[in-house]
Amino acid sequence: MERFYDLLTACIDDCVSKIKIRPRKYPIWFTTDLICPLKQKNVADKHYKASQSQESYAVFLEQRKELKQAKKRAYNEYLCDMQDQIIINGKRFWSFVNSRRKNRSLPTSLTYNGSSAVSGTASSPGLSDQERYPLFLRLYPSDTILVPGWEALLRYFRWKKVAIIYEDVEMFSLLMKELVLLFEDHGGYEVLTVEHVQSGFEPTNQIQSLKNHNARIIIILAYPQMTRQITCQAYRMGLYGRKYVWMLPGWLSSNWYLGPDGENGVTCSEEQMKSALEGYLGIKVLSYTKDFNKVNFHGVVSHEINMFTTLFVTITRSEDVKSRQPRGYQILFSRMNIPSCKM
């Protein structure tokens, strides 16, 4: 099999033309109509610096003013057009978001209306770094706690070969590394391939790679939108059915594959998504508490579950209460019992 893939790769290298992708010189919202005025403004600037005359400076100021106005119009038009098409062209939105980001790491602090803000249900492994977040108190476990669960499932079903595809953000890249390390430490497992997909981009090449490696047990580490894209592309390329097992984070909301308001942002229908996902395995933290009327936290008892639900939704601004109640209850009253804790 390895010999076959070597020959296939050699054929692709010999027969498929290659292009060099150059880094973007202008912002993503720049239009061709702005390039010429920009160059003229730069020429006027150089001319003024060389001559130091008031006349050339006036020309420079006028061209700079016109360019600023044109750039402002182009930027606003781009934003309006992008917002109008965000449902049918989510890739364009995420490309814009990525172009605005200076790095892919989590921010070291978060503020809301001038006050420090925290998340009681944040599960990113990156927040465990005490050097970067020395004042962060973890009230909910990192997603790395799920890693032994994936390994236990593989061991139980005696699956030895696994592939991983993840969204290229810090949260999932760190989780991927933990998975690979665990598989290596336990031995007996073979990670066929690890594929990463940038937010806002189609995972076509990555799914093709999974297919080329004959991956059957595949772990997805991604947010809902990217998971929908991966699932749809897997359906298009035939990576579903009895021979395939997809393993996903279990914290995805119910009917996550439909997307908000039924708009999943992909070209697959609901039935196609269900066909691709049939039998998938989701792993999440076990919620022990079922009857909240029996909860007693240092004398604080929830007699009215609706009272807690309202309070939790108000504080977290999250409507996904059903899946968050067990950990939310503990987090909420833990905060109340921490001295000088501001909520």
Rank of each mutant, 00 (worst) to 15 (best):
L8M: 13
L8Y: 14
D13I: 06
D14A: 12
V16D: 02
K18M: 06
R22E: 14
F30C: 07
T31I: 02
L34N: 00
P37V: 00
P37E: 00
A44T: 04
D45Q: 14
Q54M: 08
E55Y: 15
Y57T: 05
Y57H: 13
A58N: 14
V59D: 12
V59S: 07
E62W: 07
E62P: 04
A74G: 01
A74S: 06
Y75D: 10
N76A: 07
E77A: 10
D84V: 12
Q85A: 08
Q85H: 14
S99V: 01
K102Q: 14
Y112L: 14
A117V: 04
S119M: 09
T121L: 13
S123I: 03
G126H: 05
E131Y: 12
F136M: 06
Y140E: 09
S142T: 07
S142H: 04
G149N: 02
E151S: 13
L153C: 06
R155H: 06
R155A: 10
V169N: 12
L179A: 01
L181Y: 09
E190K: 15
H196W: 08
H196E: 15
G200I: 01
N212I: 10
H213F: 15
R216P: 13
I217E: 11
I217Q: 13
I220K: 13
Y223E: 09
Q229S: 09
T231P: 01
Q233S: 13
M237Q: 15
Y240G: 00
G241D: 04
K243H: 13
L248F: 01
G250R: 00
S254D: 15
D261L: 12
G262N: 04
S269E: 03
G282R: 02
V285M: 10
V285T: 10
G299I: 00
V300I: 13
N306P: 08
T310C: 08
T314E: 15
S318R: 10
E319H: 12
K322N: 09
K322E: 12
Y329H: 11
I331S: 08
S334K: 11
S334N: 12
S334F: 11
M336L: 06
M336P: 01
